[in-house]
Design a binder for these strands. Structure first.
Length: 243
DNA sequence: TATAATGTTTGAAC
DNA sequence: AGTTCAAACATTAT
């Protein structure tokens, strides 16, 4: 379900519960969620695909993985993994990973790695890429400690936009192109966010799940690429392979 | 109906 | 000891 932009939307949708006290807690999470009962939510944060519920002395980290969902002021038929009841409504999470991070949340996350955070640092990303010249760019773009929040859709669209073949080796890609890819990971994520809010995300896909290149009319290739073996959609005519 | 998909962690195997 | 890789988790659309 979610890449970084979808988690930003989640954060915006739950703002009604910021500052609220959790009256009742429920769910089949394996962690001790009873700890949340009676606690007041100080803030919601995100780091890439991580959704963070911050309390005074610990933070609940929720990751929706591939199939996670949530409901605000409604419920699904199945039992939630984590359910929080407030005086003004309720927030329910299903099929997600729930973990507790003790203490100061800033000790766990480097915000400059998040392509949608105001502290996002493209120069740091460039330094990280320069350290792994033998990796394929399709793998590096999905590295959450370099491009936190970027998922497989954004990966494909950014590489198509930047005209770089997903199996290109980082050390062989011209520096100018690498910087372009880094910038587009952030830019595209914010466009993704706007499109998703308008329920028009798929309409803007240029290569993901496509079969013909919109630039040259030649077939889009589909292949599971890199060590991560995630599916890639690309045009071998328009996207240059650097090896 | 079987398959595969916007993802990550874990632990066995090498 | 470091890496690699399959398995596990779980839902839904095609």
């Amino acid at each position: 379900m979610p890449e970084g932009p979808s988690i930003i939307i989640l954060k915006e949708e739950v703002q009604q519960f910021a500052g609220q006290k959790i009256i009742e807690v429920d769910g089949n999470s394996s962690i001790d969620i009873e700890r949340l009962k009676g606690k007041t939510i100080l803030d919601f944060k995100t780091w890439g695909k991580h959704f963070l519920i911050c309390f005074d002395d610990f933070t609940v980290k929720i990751h929706l993985l591939m199939f996670g969902t949530y409901r605000i002021n409604e419920r699904k038929e199945t039992k939630p993994r984590l359910s929080m009841i407030f005086s003004n409504g309720e927030l329910n999470f299903y099929t997600c990973s729930v973990k507790i991070l003790e203490g100061d949340i800033n000790l766990y996350y480097n915000w400059s790695e998040d392509v949608m955070n105001e502290k996002w640092d493209p120069k740091k990303a460039k330094k990280s890429l320069d350290k792994i010249p033998d990796e394929m760019i399709c793998d590096a773009i999905l590295d959450q400690n370099i491009f936190s929040g970027v998922g497989n859709i954004i990966k494909n669209e950014v590489l198509y936009r930047c005209k770089i073949h997903p199996e290109s080796l980082i050390g062989k890609i011209p520096s100018k192109d690498l910087k372009n890819i880094i910038n587009e990971c952030s830019i595209y994520s914010f466009e993704f966010l706007d499109w998703k809010k308008n329920y028009e995300l798929k309409k803007h896909w240029l290569t993901y799940t496509k079969s013909v290149c919109l630039r040259c009319n030649l077939p889009i290739h589909r292949k599971h690429t890199g060590k991560r073996n995630r599916r890639s959609f690309f045009c071998t005519n328009c996207q240059k392979l650097h090896v």
